[in-house]
Every structure is written in C-alpha cells, then in structure tokens.
Write a protein that binds this DNA or RNA. Structure first.
Length: 678
DNA sequence: GAGCCATTTTATTGGCCACA
DNA sequence: TGTGGCCAATAAAATGGCTC
C-alpha cells in the first residue's frame, strides 16, 4: 500500500500506480522527482490542507493518506476508499483524473490515421474507456479550479486605433488572470496530460489490462514496444529527413528522459541510445545563429525619460515609460517584475535607489532560492543626469497604483480599457512591452531572422553599458543578478552586495549624461579624449549639494547642536514630485560613499562563465584542445583587436589549459556546444 | 479574409550536478 | 576546480480556431 505524506507525493503515487508494471518500472515512493514537480507549481505556496477529524493514522503509523495503491483502485468499488485527504497537489492530481474523459489531445500510436486504418475494424473495442470511474468520495473532493477573475472576457476594451495613447494600441484585451493563477493553470494542464499518458498507456498497452484485448492489438503492441529503441531512431531519422525544426528531436529526447526517470517508463534503451542522441545533436547543430535582442541606445532611453516627464501624454503611457525605465535601470527581466513582493524608496534628488524585492524570478528554482528575495536596485539618476523617481511616484499615485511598501503583484498591471482608469489583475505581458517599445520609439518591426528591440532589450541595455565601460567581472555578475552571487548569501547580504555595483552603474550613467562615455559610438570612441574629469554638470550639482549640506548642518547646529542626521528618504507625496521636477537640471550620486563601498568589496570573483554562442568567423576557425580532457573547442582565429580576449564558440575563454589542436588531436571528442555553434 | 486570442513550438539562458 | 551535459523557466514566434 502506498501511504503518502501530505507533502504532495500523491502525484507521483498516482503516476506510479499508473505506470508500475510490465513495460513501466515502478517509482519508489518518496524518491520520485515527480513529487518535486510541485516545485514551481501551485503547491509551492499553498498550504497543505489537513483534516485530522476524518483522517486517522494509517496502520503503518504514518499520518499519510491512502489514495490509490494501484490503478485497479480506480475502478468502481462497492465501498468507498477509507480516506481521502487532499492537499493542493492532491487536488490537482484528482482534478486531473476527473478531467480524463475530456482529454483528447493525446493521440496514441494506433490512433494515427495510417494505423487506425489497419485496425479500423477494432475501433469499437479500442475506444478508450476513460470515463471517470472514481471512488465516490474522490468525486466529492472539490477540485482546485483557478479562481479566474472575470470569466467573461474583459472585452470592455474599446481601444483607440488612430491617434491616441500608445498603450491603447499595444495592450490586448485578455482575461484578468494573475500570474499565480496562470502558473497554476499551466501546472494543472501538465498534470492532466501526463496523467492521461500514464493511464492510457497502462489501460491499452499492457497485456491483460486492456478492457478487451485482441490479438491484433497485442501484435501491434509487440511491434511498437518490443523494439522501442529502433522505433525511436526511425522517428528521429524521419524528423531529420523531413527537415523538422532543429530542436524537435532534442525535445523528443527530453520527453523520453522525463518519462523514463520521473514517470518510470522503461525507456533506458532510448535515452541511452547513441544513434538517437547523435541524430538529435546533428539536427540541433542546424539551429540558426544566436540573435539576441538589441540594447536600447542612449537616445532611445532619453526618449523614454521624455515620455515619462511629458505631462501632455496619457498617464498610462507615462506609467509604461516608468515601468520600462525601472526594468532598464534595474537590469530586470520582464518576468522579474511580474510578481514582486515590495517596493522601498531610498533616494532623494541627489541619487539613491529604488529597491524592489521579488521571490519569483528565473533563478528561483530550488526551494532554497525560492525562500530568498531577489533585490532589484534601480539607480535614481537617469542618463539625462536628473532624478526621475519622483515622476514615477507621481504617475503611479495618480493612477492609484501601489508604488511603495508591500505589493504582492506586478509592478504594472495591464490597463483594462483605453481610458486607463481601471487596471486588470493580470500583469502587463512581455509582448505588450515589446510592442510598446517599438511603437513609442517609432521602431519598425525587425526583419525576418532578426530580434530587434524587445522586452529583452531592457535587461541587456545597462549590462551592455557596464561591459563596454570595462567594470570588473564581479560587478557585471552582480549587476546581471546571476544567482551565483547570492548563492552563499542570505537576502540581506545579497541586498547589500548589490549596493556597490549599483553605485558603479550609477557613475557610468552619469558619465553618459556628462558625455564622457558614449556607449553607442564605435569602440575607439567610447570615451572622451582627453578625459574631462569631473563633468561640469556633476561638479555643479556636487557643489550645490555641498552648499545645501553645509546650510543644513549649520542650521542643525544652531537649533539642536546635534550631529547631522541622515537625509530623509524621498517624499512620496505628489507635491514633492511636481515641485522638484524642474528645479534640478542635473544630479550625481554620492561618490564619497561609493569609494568606501569599493574598499569594502570582497576581492573580485572569478570570471563568469559565458554561455550560449560566441561569434565564430567561418573563415578563421581554429580548433583548440583541452590539455587534460583532450576535448576539442572552436575559436575564432581572428581577433578584432590585439588585446581582445579569445572566446570559444561554447562561450569559454581560451586559457593556458588549452593549446592549438594538432593532427593527432582531431580524432578526440568535440565540445558539443562548439560543434553546434560552428 | 482579416483580426484577435489562445495555444503550441522554438529559442535563449542560467542553475545544477557528475566527473576527472 | 574546470568541464560537459542536462534541466527548467521564460520569451518570442508560429499556428490554430473563432468571429465578423
């Protein structure tokens, strides 16, 4: 009897029940990664329900829940199963079973047109008998349905199509589904599909278990499953001959691995097959070269600042400009801002940061990382040399959008109508941000094969600047918010760790504002020559600040005789933003503090390992070999500049661990990534 | 057939882990 | 510690279905 702890192992148990026997090896309860599948699913945050009143301990003494030991348990029983105590994961799995009869997306091999023609006379007996036949009390369990807001489509949108606010042209009319609800819906769907596969496999493919097994079906089963590796190889070979998408065979192998290692299908011959993997990799190597989103130019960022400050524009357009600037200066993915925890303001008209905390981000995969906040520090001074946070606060407050304290939702929800007075609970989507950027900046749609400017450009822009400016690898790594930076630090430490690099970014932004750094120019003209330190704008503002500080200090001494206190945080009142909008022509951050921060910084970390493709000149390819592993790597043999670091096509740097390959080396193993990128 | 929306497919990128 | 490989999350493009 499988006894399940209320930790969500029901999903694996059900799949185990569905899979265990014959062609499918059983899954060890409690060890299956399927139980980990709730990670990232709705079970991650929802508490497991308990019902101690109805759930006495099992005979084994485990306070678990007996759900289904075998699939046979799913057959109608004269007496209902003794106990059901579903938590959210259990609900999901039960709900998946309750929907089985509705699922038609999975086409079993014998249902394909060609094979079904052969077995057409068996259609009556091969009809999947998947009508739900669940124990009564299971049906009584309230299935977890996403509480989708406004099931009726929010089609109360009557967007202006001609001249009008940009957001009205790019924001789509969609159901108001929160990011959590969307995540839960996708998760349930995945559970449904895999459960469908498992149950139908067992019902119809295992000898003796099909409702009405017939000789023809058994023969077909034998033909298909007795030589599963050969069939898999024929399939991927066919994909290659058909010139299918380069990743399709790899995707097939990934599915086979999941089915084998997680669900317990006995597919070892497939996942270990050299020839299947070989064909998949040959196809994968045919992928087109990497085309990353273009970073925004300084001029385009200035346009966004202008849009935010332009009072003649629609408030929602200004809010979207502010959102884009937050993502840009915060080096945030669109998804990082989709479900934030809180916003904290720590800035004044001289600089500082907007601090956003989020727990839902791309790096949050392990349970440990999910428990940590990802701090996003946004510099308060823009490339126009002025503070801009007060405009953000002003616009958001006018729209009644939360901009301080706990948020627990998206930074910018999608407007519900063209009036921009109401907002849906759903977050603005990445596609809408991309469309807004292109519309607002007047950029044409990228030509086929190019990425152009997209929401990805927001994360890439500042990182491109710091890269061109030549800051340390550690600073780039922290600013890029790569998880390795926070892997050994708790949330508070990670937040403090970001301050120094973000100040460094602020100085780069000020250098751009002062004209000392021009990232959009050719490499040889990035920096002003001769250098002009410090910039007049920064100098004037610094003097202004010192003057004000001296006045405040003198006043404080006169009044209280106390030591000067820290500056007050930036006022969030609308009046503050409006009054200070125009009187500060430029600004700079506190360089004095940043220098001390630099001294406190730990020694630079080792260079970040680059991933993805590095450009390789087809006419100048040189193979190198790793001295120890004898693995061959490909490098572009022509440097753009003599001091340029050489990078392999796999993204690794050329080091003394490598040497140019000789004839004797060419039979050695080849780096798959280099081969793909060649 | 155009336009819109939802879904599916493909591409990108960072994390994690095994192994030498 | 360096290296290779796999997985997961996400973005964006492609596709399909529906309505007018």
């Amino acid at each position: 009897m499988a006894v399940l702890r209320p930790s969500g192992e029901i999903s694996s148990s059900i799949l185990q029940s569905a899979c265990a026997s014959g062609a499918m090896a059983g899954i060890t309860a409690g060890s299956s990664a399927a139980s980990d599948g709730q990670e990232g699913g709705p079970g991650e945050s929802a508490p497991v329900e308990s019902d101690a009143d109805t759930e006495p301990e099992s005979a084994e003494g485990d306070k678990g829940i007996r759900v289904f030991d075998r699939l046979d348990d799913l057959e109608p029983e004269s007496s209902p199963p003794p106990r059901v105590q579903p938590g959210i994961v259990q609900h999901a799995a039960i709900d998946a079973f309750s929907r089985m009869g509705k699922l038609t997306s999975i086409q079993m091999p014998w249902e394909s047109p060609s094979v079904s023609a052969i077995f057409s006379d068996l259609s009556a007996t091969l009809q999947p008998s998947l009508a739900a036949c669940w124990p009564g009390n299971v049906q009584n369990v309230p299935a977890v349905q996403p509480q989708i807001e406004n099931i009726k489509p929010a089609v109360d949108v009557n967007f202006v199509t001609a001249q009008g606010p940009v957001f009205a042209k790019v924001v789509k009319s969609r159901q108001g589904v929160t990011p959590q609800q969307k995540r839960q819906r996708d998760w349930l769907k995945a559970v449904n599909i895999w459960t469908d596969v498992c149950v139908r496999f067992r019902r119809e493919c295992e000898p003796g278990l099909a409702a009405k097994d017939v000789p023809e079906q058994a023969a077909f089963r034998e033909a298909v499953f007795a030589n599963v590796e050969a069939n898999a190889w024929r399939y991927v070979s066919q994909l290659k001959d058909m010139e299918a998408a380069p990743t399709k065979a790899e995707a097939f192998l990934s599915s086979a691995r999941f089915a084998h290692f997680v669900l317990g299908f006995n597919l070892a011959l497939v996942v270990d097959s050299k020839r299947v993997k070989g064909v998949a990799q040959q196809m994968f190597a045919g992928k087109e070269a990497l085309k990353q989103a273009l970073p925004l130019s300084v001029h385009q960022v200035l346009q966004l600042h202008q849009g935010l400050a332009d009072v003649s524009r629609h408030l929602v357009d200004r809010a979207m400009c502010a959102y884009v600037l937050i993502a840009l200066y915060g080096r945030a993915r669109h998804s990082d801002l989709e479900q934030i925890s809180s916003i904290k303001h720590d800035h004044d008209k001289y600089g500082g940061f907007l601090e956003i905390l989020t727990r839902k981000h791309k790096g949050a995969k392990s349970a440990q990382k999910k428990s940590k906040f990802l701090p996003i520090l946004v510099p308060a001074i823009g490339v126009h040399g002025k503070p801009w946070m007060h405009l953000l606060v002003d616009v958001f407050q006018r729209l009644s959008l939360p901009v301080d304290g706990a948020i627990d939702g998206p930074v910018l929800p999608a407007p519900r109508d063209s009036g921009g007075e109401e907002f849906s609970c759903r977050a603005i989507e990445s596609g809408e941000v991309t469309a807004f950027l292109r519309q607002f900046l007047g950029l044409p749609a990228p030509v086929a094969g190019e990425r152009g400017v997209s929401s990805h450009s927001l994360k890439a822009t500042c990182l491109s600047w710091v890269n061109k400016y030549g800051v340390s690898d550690r600073t780039q790594t922290v600013l890029g918010r790569h998880c390795k930076c926070a892997s050994t630090a708790d949330a508070v430490y990670a937040r403090d760790m970001c301050v120094g690099p973000t100040r460094e970014l602020q100085r780069i932004i000020e250098a751009i504002a002062g004209g000392d750094f021009r990232p959009d120019e050719a490499r040889s003209r990035y920096f002003r020559f001769p250098p002009r330190p410090p910039s007049p704008v920064a100098e004037v503002l610094e003097n202004q600040r010192k003057d004000e500080e001296s006045v405040q200090s003198a006043a404080a001494e006169l009044e209280e005789g106390e030591a000067s206190e820290p500056e007050e945080p930036f006022s969030l009142s609308p009046a503050c933003g409006a009054s200070e909008q125009d009187d500060s022509s430029s600004s700079s951050s506190d360089d004095g503090c940043s220098s001390s921060d630099e001294e406190d910084q730990p020694p630079p970390a080792k260079a970040q390992r680059l991933r993805g493709r590095a450009p390789v000149n087809a006419d100048a390819q040189v193979w190198w070999v790793h001295r120890r592993s004898k693995m061959l790597h490909l490098v572009n043999g022509q440097k753009a500049t003599p001091d340029e670091e050489q990078i392999f096509a796999c993204g690794r740097s050329v080091s003394r661990m490598f040497r140019p390959a000789e004839d004797a080396d060419v039979r050695g193993p080849v780096c798959n990534t280099c081969a793909k990128n060649a």
